[in-house]
Design a protein around this nucleic acid. Sequence first.
RNA 1: GGCCCGUUGGUCAAGGGGUUAAGACGCAUCCCUUUCACGGAUGAAUCACGAGUUCGAUUCUCGUACGGGCUACCA
Length: 531
Amino acid sequence: MYFPAKIIVFNKIDLSVLLLRSMAELNKVRVRFAPSPTGGLHLGGVRTVLYNYLFARQHNGRFILRIEDTDQSRYVPGAEEYIFNCLKWVGLEPDESVIHGGSFGPYRQSERKALYRQYAEQLVKEGYAYYAFDTPAELEEMRSRYKTDQNPSPQYDHTVRSAMRNSLAMSESEVQKLLAENARHVIRIKMPEAETVRFTDMIRGEVSFNTAVVDDKVLLKADGMPTYHLAVVVDDHLMEISHVFRGEEWLPSAPVHILLWRYLFGAEAMPQWAHLPLILGPNGKLSKRDGAKYGFPVFAMNWTDPATGELTEGFKEKGFLPEAFINLLALLGWNDGSEQEIFSKDELVEKFSLERVHSGGAKFDYEKAKWFNHEWIKKLQVSGLREQVKQVLGNSGIRVTDEQLLDNVLALVKERCTLLTDFAEQAGFFFKAPGKYDMDAVKPKWNETKQAFFLKLLQAYNPKDSWKPDELETLFKEMVTAQKIKVGELMLPLRIMLVGGKFGPGVFQIAGLLGKEETVLRIRKFLDLLQ
RNA sequence: GGCCCGUUGGUCAAGGGGUUAAGACGCAUCCCUUUCACGGAUGAAUCACGAGUUCGAUUCUCGUACGGGCUACCA
């Protein structure tokens, strides 16, 4: 009597679990970053990657990287590999891509070329698009003909299309003849003459457009490649993308994409859109130029233009930690509402939410960016810094052989380094005696008494068996008190002897790490130099 | 020019009808530190403007101004 009831209950549970699972499959989150491999990876691009990544991780979804290389004239060798290197550096690697694989490939649009034409043709057949045979010269002619002060950039739209050479204006037989002759042509979307297209953006709410003022965008180019507009819609559908995050600069062409979705795959199937606020420079959208002009990086990593050989410095080489780079990017347009500003990647995955992304653009502040890096250098354990600092020291000709010393040095100096490159100055002298000294800090005030003092110091330090900072300091101060000189008057010269300049941690801390031998050697060397 | 999006200190920003309008960066001054940092303290905003709604608008509505984006067979 009791048993059957129990079995029924179990069955119910199994059913609901199954139901939930299939619903989860249906609503599977799939997002994508779709860069065009034409040059360096802009910090705005990395932020888009980040938001995609965070959203995917948060929803147990997949993050896809699709290469949008439909413009063959803009092909730049190496750019694609460079993008992957950047993503690897920041630790935001895709689940599916050209190199990560996946079952929705190919992930490079140029390899999907054959796919797009049928969709464009279908649109023509259904009256949503048309063939256009206008040559570049004819387009140019149209633009200059309609150009006025009131209308500085005439569009190819419903007001002019009947006066152009396209399948809407020409006779059926004429069109067929041209097509049979393989005449160069494009396929353009036929924008409705007056319709309001609206959609709900996840960041800015309802946005609406009047199709009358949107032009008949080219969907399929004369070379058979799709334009961005056709390709995004087709690929987002085929790759089952659920949410699209892209820059605000795409907002004006959103109605084209909405319409294409409606015509091709149905509005219900459309992914949700989120147009991210722009990252601004001192004047407008942040550009590579701004970086060069104001002296801060814009690209994630160094990028050398293969055509011109021009090098653009990246955040990595400038001395940024990937942790800091991600952190500062996340906060450029988003915050969790609390006072917290330092977030690890895991915390971001946990706390990020689209609802808290701003709609207004944010001006990039390099000073604040450096602050984030400083915070992360302070926060990170030496183990997280070791390899990167070795690299930095290596770049200035210092090879680290004593790993233990490196760890001690890092712990001692990291709080005074804002960029990783600062370690060259702040840590370098521990491994290599100063090559030159800040003589101005010593010479003007140097005298016989001081010279004598240091000789005596040498005599006191040399025979010491233990070598602890505290003891060295006490001994030093005891000896100074015997003189009629201020402690500072002698401490600064000692610093210069050991460090070379007026910087670094406490002098005796330095001496401690340097060891007796090296400390004595440096003092003696300097004294000789002054003779 | 047209269309779209936006507007809280120099910058990033919290707050969304009644608040002394958070916090951070940067800046300035001071304290700590016999270097430089770190750390601590203090200082600086009539919430773009004008109407409206309201007992009351930074917060809601509408205009204006300003800023930005788009306006290619580029993405």
